[in-house]
Computed example of a mutant assay.
Amino acid sequence: MSLTDFQTNIFNQEYIELFEKADIKTVESILLQSPLRLQQKTSLSLEIIQKIQRDLQKYHCAVPSVATDLYNKAVSLKEYRYLKTNCCIDDILGGEGLPTGELTELIGTSPSGKTQFALFIAMQVSRFYQENVIYIDTSSSFSADRIAEMYKQQIGETTTIDSNQSILAILDRIRRYNCLDPIKLVDTLEAISNSFEFDNYLKNVKLIIIDSIGTLLYTSFGGKLTHGHYVMMKIARLLKSLAHKNQIAVLITNNTVKMDSDVLDHLKNVQSTPENRLQKASLGESWAAVSNHHLYLYGDFYDDETIERSIALRSSTRYQRIEKPFSINSFGIQ
């Protein structure tokens, strides 16, 4: 990788050009040489060189940290340990809500309601916590109109000047990113990560939503190509780092694929499992280990056009399996 790939606010383009003119073209060359030696080659002050080396170590090296420092930082950032969603997800996740510092994955087929959950939760966090939300839209499914509709139904008011101002305030705290290819998503997450400490909007972000990771990655790579796997795990590392370092909640939606044939045969022989339960999250076993909590959305469709929906916690690092009914209407999620 070139030096430009590690450009930061401290290690800026001016300094990069000075190092390249001195025939220092890799980060390893900067980190392995003494500050005095680098000063002789670049004419930069020792203070600046030491700042650059410390800055590059954050992104390039595994620098050991004292556990006490990590704990104190986590405590200082945990203004909210959980984000209440005011819907069935709170009951599913121990009655507490989305845990900050962790990844929660919402999994279901195309008409199961994943985007409705994402929009509803974005609105709830913006409205009740008055904190910022990043909504990464990979399929052009974000709808400000739907958020406004849910808000109006919840407050039970017709359109007034006050309600319109409240809606605008809620939407103003939600920043939507349109990412239609995996590389753009990587670039977006890296830009967010690098700017978190300096950007006033990002400092107040408490929730990141990606809707939908399955649509983006599965259609691009099919989960089989080596390059696709690398990009997928790069995205996973960025999300986990953002969640942990900044103590924010991350909500990801994902599609489903059929279970492997041997698993299907076993389930059909051992128990009578409904067809819509014979699904697993897309993107394979590597991605399955990324999220802390996996919530599955199910829908039973009947001839009279009624739908019985439920949400189930199938795996979690903390909570026991549980299933709850829910419905989708103009109010949002109930």
Score class of each variant (00 low, 15 high):
S166M: 12
N164H: 11
I174G: 02
T159W: 12
A144R: 10
I167G: 06
I174M: 02
Q165T: 11
D172R: 15
S140A: 15
I147T: 03
S140H: 14
S163F: 08
S143D: 02
S141I: 09
S163K: 02
Q153S: 14
A144N: 08
R173Y: 07
I155T: 04
G156H: 02
T160C: 03
S140C: 15
R173P: 08
Q165L: 11
I167R: 09
I174A: 00
L168Q: 14
I170D: 03
Q154I: 02
T158M: 06
R175D: 03
I161D: 11
A169T: 12
R146F: 03
S143Q: 05
I161L: 11
S166T: 12
I147E: 02
A144C: 07
I147H: 00
E149D: 12
T160N: 08
K152L: 15
E149I: 12
Q153I: 10
D162E: 15
D162W: 09
M150W: 04
E149M: 13
S143E: 03
S140Q: 14
I174P: 00
I155Q: 00
S163V: 10
I155S: 01
I161N: 09
I174N: 00
D145Y: 09
I161S: 10
A144Y: 04
L171V: 09
R173K: 11
L168T: 15
S143A: 03
M150N: 06
L171C: 08
Q154G: 02
D162C: 08
T159A: 11
A148E: 04
T159K: 14
D172I: 08
Y151W: 14
I161E: 13
T160M: 07
M150L: 11
R175K: 15
R175V: 09
D162Y: 06
R146D: 05
D172M: 12
L168A: 15
R146P: 05
I170L: 10
N164F: 12
I161V: 11
E157C: 02
Q154M: 04
T159F: 05
T158D: 06
E149S: 11
S166D: 13
K152S: 14
Q153K: 15
D145I: 03
E157D: 01
R175W: 12
R175I: 12
K152D: 06
F142L: 04
S163I: 08
Y151K: 10
Y151L: 10
Y151A: 05
D162N: 11
S163R: 05
K152C: 08
T160R: 01
L168I: 15
S166N: 14
I167H: 09
Q165K: 12
Q153W: 10
E149T: 13
S163P: 05
E157H: 01
T159V: 15
